[in-house]
């Protein structure tokens, strides 16, 4: 069977951009569904998360949505949305948006709340207006956690977009469900491999963007890398204490019930 998978994966016709049922076209479709849903979910959930995080009003919404989002099976949610809204591209997109909102909202909220009270107090104390506190202080420090949510939402959406094919649309799910129906296992496994690679690549892209967006001062890079200006004496006075540089930075978005990644489809 493995030879079949390899020859399917290496078959040049499967990689021609013009081929409707080729990997290139299916990947573009797949990314199209995913990106649309992710952008809509972001536009809805991110500002709401900022607002709830900054004011701490409506926190129960953010927390409960996150918990419910983790316990609800993705497949069931998608099927229920389709049963209510109907079948087609729009219902599938709605279902994906519904899945992507909780992780984005919850982590944006959690990221904002995780910013040290002293930092926010200082921002207010030096005379920042509320919107300046949100965008110049809270958000830049919340990014590591917020990105955890964005990456998680992206992964869920990319994984779940597979279901578009289950209800007759395109995307990489076509290889899985067509292959299962035809008992063409090389096709199934080849599709699964391309899907897995796509997921890893999407995550990688997000992690690169995260590196560009997040300040080295908050994600631990600053305490790890070679110190700039470390040749200079620490201070003019003697007896200055030495900073304790943690060997490993804390893992932002690590484990904590409110920030933990959610795994789905």
């Amino acid at each position: 069977m493995n030879d079949g998978i390899l020859s399917f994966l290496l078959d040049a016709t499967n990689w021609q951009p013009g081929n409707n049922d080729g990997f290139v076209n299916r990947t573009i479709e797949h990314l199209g569904y995913s990106a649309t849903a992710l952008v809509i979910a972001f536009v809805v959930a991110f500002p709401l998360g900022l607002l709830i995080g900054h004011t701490n009003r409506g926190a129960f919404l953010a927390i409960n949505l996150g918990n419910a989002g983790r316990a609800l099976p993705t497949l069931g949610v998608v099927m229920l949305v389709l049963a209510i809204v109907g079948v087609g591209l729009t219902p599938v997109t709605v279902a994906l948006v519904v899945l992507a909102i909780p992780p984005i909202l919850t982590t944006t909220y959690a990221g904002m709340r995780a910013v040290s009270g002293a930092t926010v107090d200082a921002a207010r104390g030096v005379g920042m207006k509320e919107w300046q506190i949100v965008f110049q202080v809270e958000l830049p420090n919340a990014w590591p956690i917020v990105f955890g949510g964005l990456r998680n939402a992206a992964l869920q959406v990319v994984s779940t977009a597979t279901l578009a094919a289950y209800v007759g649309l395109g995307g990489l799910g076509r290889y899985l469900f067509d292959g299962l129906a035809l008992r063409d296992y090389p096709r199934v496994v080849a599709g699964a491999i391309v899907l897995a690679v796509l997921a890893v690549v999407v995550d990688l892209v997000f992690s690169l963007v995260q590196r560009l967006v997040v300040s080295p001062g908050v994600d631990g890079r600053a305490s790890r890398g070679p110190r700039r200006g470390s040749n200079a004496p620490a201070a003019l006075t003697a007896s200055e204490d030495v900073p304790d540089v943690a060997d490993d930075a804390p893992t932002p978005g690590g484990v904590g019930m409110d920030k933990a990644p959610r795994k789905s489809l």
Partner: peptide, 11 residues
């Protein structure tokens, strides 16, 4: 010292 100017607070 000005050598510290480009460091982050954690450092």
């Amino acid at each position: 010292t000005t050598g510290m100017a480009d460091r982050y607070p954690v450092q």
